[in-house]
Simulated assay, not measured.
Amino acid sequence: MADDYDFGPPAATAHNGEVVAYVPRLDRRRVVVPLTMHNTGEKRASYTVTVTADRGERGAPVTVTKKALNVSSGTTWPTQADISAPGFWNPKDTKITLKVTKDNYPLGHSR
């Protein structure tokens, strides 16, 4: 489950709670958004997640796409999106939005 990864508080959820983005954090001088994708379906699935980080007055939004392919039913796929951008900004003041596409064909072939 997503709680097993200790990513902290959620910043955004999508696709009926299957995809969760957590509050951005610094990781080796990079700003990252931890993500979990939990397949609640009965079949394997692939996820395409577009993460948009709005830094407000500190700069233009940053958009990153992450994929998780062939996620087994009932399992959670942890990953992170690197949203680093020029300039100083506080990751905790960042607004995160998600757009998710779930494909029930495990190799990502939409039909």
Rank of each mutant, 00 (worst) to 15 (best):
A2K: 12
D3A: 14
Y5F: 15
Y5T: 06
Y5G: 03
Y5L: 11
D6A: 15
D6F: 15
G8E: 04
G8M: 04
P9L: 06
P10L: 04
A12P: 06
A14C: 11
A14N: 07
H15M: 05
H15Y: 13
G17F: 10
G17M: 09
E18R: 08
V20K: 10
V23K: 14
V23A: 12
P24F: 05
L26R: 11
R30V: 01
R30F: 06
R30W: 01
R30Q: 15
V31E: 07
V32W: 03
V32L: 08
V32Y: 09
V33I: 12
V33C: 07
L35K: 02
T36H: 09
T36A: 09
H38N: 08
H38K: 08
N39I: 06
N39D: 12
T40W: 04
T40V: 06
E42C: 01
K43I: 01
K43C: 01
R44A: 13
R44L: 05
A45I: 04
A45K: 09
S46A: 14
S46H: 02
T48V: 11
T50H: 06
V51W: 06
D54K: 07
D54P: 02
D54Q: 06
R55M: 13
G56S: 07
G56I: 09
R58M: 04
R58E: 11
V62I: 11
V62Y: 10
V62G: 04
T63A: 15
T63D: 08
V64Q: 13
V64E: 14
V64H: 10
A68M: 12
A68V: 00
L69I: 13
L69W: 14
V71S: 04
T75I: 04
T75K: 12
T76R: 02
T76C: 10
T76Y: 01
P78T: 01
P78S: 02
Q80E: 12
Q80V: 00
A81C: 11
I83H: 04
I83S: 07
S84R: 01
S84V: 01
A85P: 02
P86I: 03
F88L: 12
F88C: 02
F88S: 14
K92W: 04
K95W: 03
I96Y: 02
T97G: 03
T97Y: 05
L98S: 05
L98D: 06
K99L: 11
V100A: 05
V100N: 07
V100S: 08
T101G: 02
K102V: 12
D103W: 00
N104T: 14
N104S: 11
N104A: 08
Y105Q: 14
P106K: 13
P106H: 12
G108P: 05
G108W: 10
G108D: 04
H109K: 00
H109M: 04
H109I: 06
R111I: 12
R111C: 05
